[in-house]
Simulated assay, not measured.
Amino acid sequence: MDEVWGLLAERGVPVVVHASSIPLPGRCTGPAPIGGLLEYHPTLPLVVAHLGMPEYDEFFELAETFPNVRLDTTMTFTDFAERGMPFPARLRPRLRDLGLAGKVLLGSDFPNIPPYAHQLHALDRLDLGDDWLRAVCWDNADNLFDLSSHYTRSAGHL
């Protein structure tokens, strides 16, 4: 896979990875293997699903260390996740900083569970501010995927 990862890094293609060690740990999952991958390909644009749940600390560190590593919010903060693997309150300041720095993206698992609206509500009830919520729900993905220019170009063709 090294050649594939290298090509993705070279082209700047964002890749969403289910990188945490749940539901089952493996030799390619968890923060250590992902950190090793990033040592070889430090510019690889990775989006770590579920904020790396439950290894939040380690995946936050990777996002803080590598410029193109981002985290998505899929399932985190929902009632289901908070019952089984609650997000540590001590990490909220880092979550806020990462979100405002463009490192946290809305993830939904849409159309899977839980319902999309519940995931949005779960982010809103974190009470991290309108700027954070706007960044996570739109601006950060817009910057990564250049969505605004796409919609501007598309609108010109109507």
Rank of each mutant, 00 (worst) to 15 (best):
R70L: 11
L95F: 02
A49Y: 04
S154I: 09
E3N: 14
P86M: 01
C28W: 05
D124Q: 14
L51I: 06
R125F: 00
D124N: 10
A155Y: 02
R83T: 04
L128W: 00
I113D: 13
F145C: 13
Y151R: 10
G107Y: 03
S20W: 01
M1A: 15
L38C: 12
D57V: 01
D79Q: 03
V69R: 14
G6C: 12
D142C: 04
P111T: 03
C137H: 05
T65C: 14
Y56I: 02
T74H: 08
A89W: 03
F80T: 07
V17S: 10
D79S: 02
I34R: 08
D130Y: 03
K103D: 11
R153F: 00
H118R: 05
L126F: 02
P114F: 00
T74R: 10
W138E: 14
E3G: 14
W132I: 08
R134H: 07
A155F: 00
T73C: 14
Y56L: 08
R90L: 09
L158E: 11
S21R: 13
S20G: 12
L147K: 02
L100E: 11
Y56R: 04
R134F: 00
N140A: 11
L126I: 08
D142A: 15
G107Q: 07
D57P: 00
A49F: 00
L91R: 15
A89D: 14
N140H: 07
D97H: 06
E82I: 00
V4Q: 15
D146N: 13
V16T: 08
L147Y: 00
L105V: 09
E3F: 05
V47H: 09
G36T: 02
D79P: 00
G36H: 05
I34S: 12
P45S: 04
V104P: 10
Y56Q: 02
M1Y: 09
P67N: 08
A122Y: 02
P115I: 00
E3W: 04
C137T: 15
R90D: 14
Y151E: 06
P86A: 01
N140D: 09
D131K: 15
T78G: 05
L91G: 06
Y151S: 07
F87V: 03
L46D: 12
L144Q: 12
E64Y: 05
F80D: 10
P93R: 04
E39S: 15
R94M: 07
R94F: 03
